[in-house]
């Protein structure tokens, strides 16, 4: 949604394909709906953007993952890293709070890449029906802070992985 660096799209596509063993394609960018901007909060309403994404699902796509370089929230929470339809098609991840610069710290591109990858796997996990996991190291653990994100591994735990694979296989058949 809006402008995203092409190299981010490329390595993300490659990493997600390698882990999930599913074809991953990059779409052309969509405009950020201005109606999703919450002026009082200086944030974008992620559910409103998710609705826009849903309207653009290309034929043959099983899931659609949006990336946005803006701070997101849902009205009830001060912020979200992303949002996904549980067991649905669309998900959205914000890059804003995954950058060290957001916290007044020097940029760290490799840390940013790790965080983005994990959060994309997290939201996609929701799309495939996974709920939050109690294992802190699992990608599906609820991350309320970047510390939580950094503590996670790059993978699902065994139980979530098995569930994820079975959902993917069901989708294939």
């Amino acid at each position: 949604m809006g402008a995203i660096d092409d190299d981010i799209l490329q390595w993300l596509r490659s990493d997600l394909h390698a882990y999930l063993d599913l074809p991953v394609k990059a779409m052309d960018s969509l405009a950020i709906p201005e109606a999703s901007f919450l002026k009082g909060r200086n944030q974008y309403h992620s559910t409103a953007i998710l609705k826009e994404i849903l309207a653009e699902v290309p034929p043959g796509a099983v899931k659609i993952l949006g990336l946005i370089d803006r701070d997101l929230c849902i009205p009830i929470l001060t912020f979200v890293f992303g949002e996904a339809q549980l067991g649905g098609t669309a998900s959205l991840v914000s890059l804003a709070r995954l950058r060290q610069e957001f916290y007044g710290l020097p940029p760290d591109p490799s840390l940013f890449r790790e965080r983005l990858y994990k959060e994309c796997l997290h939201e996609l996990g929701h799309n495939f029906g996974l709920i939050h996991c109690r294992t802190r190291e699992c990608v599906m653990y609820l991350s309320n802070t970047v510390t939580d994100v950094d503590r996670k591994e790059r993978t699902y735990c065994r139980d979530c992985d098995v569930t994820m694979l079975s959902k993917i296989e069901t989708g294939r058949s």
Partner: peptide, 17 residues
């Protein structure tokens, strides 16, 4: 009474199981 609050809170809580 706000639908957006109900929907977003419900989804967030459901993601937590």
């Amino acid at each position: 009474d706000e639908e957006i609050v109900r929907d977003s809170l419900a989804s967030w809580l459901e993601e937590d199981g």
